[in-house]
């Protein structure tokens, strides 16, 4: 069952614009049912950490005729929606990050949409739609080669 509005209000209790963050979260998890809100410690570059909410899970990305469930994590700062979310692709142990224009080696996602973020024109639904398009052209993760592919069977 989905997280309720009152649960989200509690989770986001320390957020400066709690109700805006709650409403957006509700519309995201209604539309992308494989994303869920999770509270966790986010560690900033300067080593400080803060308890923040992320939307963690997968988004459906269509690539070359197949749909893949690409694992992502969108961190909402406590100033959301007046600052963009911090976004990562989260490869599983069987995946490897494909670095490129939009993803670095840590999985951090870079997009003009994030760079030019401005509330209320920008929102999470719009961001996820952009990700689905961009990742459909250039996936941020690929499956790791299997052992058998890396080491072909020995030919007697």
């Amino acid at each position: 069952m989905a997280v309720s509005e009152s649960q989200l209000k509690k989770m986001l209790g320390k957020y400066k614009y709690r109700d805006l963050s709650v409403q957006e979260t509700i519309s995201v998890i209604a539309q992308y049912k494989d994303l869920k809100p999770v509270m966790d410690g986010y560690v900033f570059n300067d080593g400080s950490s803060r308890e923040l909410m992320s939307l963690t899970g997968t988004i459906p990305v269509s690539y070359r005729g197949n749909t893949y469930n690409i694992p992502i994590c969108l961190w909402l700062l406590d100033t959301y929606p007046f600052n963009p979310p911090i976004c990562f692709v989260k490869p599983t142990s069987t995946m490897t990050i494909k670095t490129g224009k939009h993803v670095d080696a840590n999985g951090k996602i870079y997009l003009p949409y994030l760079h030019e973020w401005k509330h209320p024109q920008s929102d999470l639904i719009g961001l996820i739609q952009v990700m689905i398009v961009v990742f459909g052209e250039e996936p941020p993760v690929f499956s790791r080669p299997t052992i058998s592919a890396a080491y072909p069977p020995y030919q007697a």
Binding site: M1, D34, N66, Y68, N69, V141, R144
Partner: peptide
């Protein structure tokens, strides 16, 4: 709780 879709990725490319 969400069923939790298994993450998938395109096959490795060469």
């Amino acid at each position: 709780l969400n069923g939790g879709t298994i993450p998938t990725a395109p096959p490795s490319y060469t």
